[in-house]
Design a protein around this nucleic acid. Structure first.
Lengths: 140, 140
DNA sequence: GTAACTTTGCAATACTGTTGCACAATCTTT
DNA sequence: AAAGATTGTGCAACAGTATTGCAAAGTTAC
């Protein structure tokens, strides 16, 4: 399969991920959907791709900070593209929003996870902050 | 089986939950452990109790605001007792802490989930804010 | 005491995530 | 360009957690 898009290849290579056909496709799906998707949802967007392949593709992406995962409490972990400069460090964390009506989970990229003063002796590594409610589209 | 403890019965009845032996036992386990427990962890503390019974007991507890659930990203939902006055409304929400070393999840009851200004059109219903790191015990 | 309702235990199942293995594709070296 | 080394993919099987149907046991109301 030919390179589908030079931009995608660049993104992958910037993260030291070899741009295979599969990876281009998975990246494209995440890019086009503009929201966090579960493994199952990604799988649904293909005809004949094996789940384990997508699973490992996502693992590769995550290991290389191309995507981040969100546990929104729906039972399935969801994945979304990181910003170009993201290294998934505490400063890169943002809040996610789960709409209880449409079930979609979105990145609130301009809402960083607030820094909290932990009790004495506790150290911070990472955080998962998901707000549930009704999104602006379902609210109309 | 006899009522094991008048205090437990009171707590259950305040929430309109009939104090059966099973429920007293599950409440007791949650009360004594002082941390959030998964269904599996609760099951382990009994000799011969069916998982589905505990599952439904927890569901009953949660439906009546006696306990709240926390999805700490470990794959299994955990449960912890609510405060006496809790109604699981936004004001009652607090942050949870998952220690990546010992795997224990604790309620940070004096750290309320901060109120965030959501983008235009979004409404707030609930939130799940879990901080991961090393707890004070593992840090020593 | 009997009927109606609730709770429990057992068994089976669904769903999500994960791994082993063999084959295919790609890269490296000559 | 061919051979060998490395990496990626598909298939199948499995693991862990959550969930349900059903019948028996327990409880409550009359």
């Amino acid at each position: 399969m030919k390179a589908m898009n030079q931009k995608i290849d660049n993104r992958l290579e910037l993260r030291n991920i070899r741009p295979t056909a599969m990876r281009q496709l998975v990246y494209d799906v995440l890019d086009k959907n503009k929201k966090a998707l579960s493994l199952y949802e990604i799988e649904q967007q293909f005809e004949d791709v094996d789940r384990s392949t997508i699973f490992r593709t996502l693992k590769t992406f995550q290991d290389n900070y191309l995507i981040h995962s969100i546990d929104d409490g729906t039972g399935a972990v969801k994945y979304a593209l990181c910003d170009e400069e993201c290294t998934c460090q505490p400063d890169d964390l943002h809040i996610h929003f789960l709409c209880t009506k449409c079930g979609q989970t979105n990145c609130l990229k301009n809402m960083p996870v607030p820094k909290m003063d932990l009790p004495q002796g506790f150290s911070f590594e990472s955080a998962n902050f998901v707000i549930k409610g009704i999104c602006s589209i379902c609210r109309k």
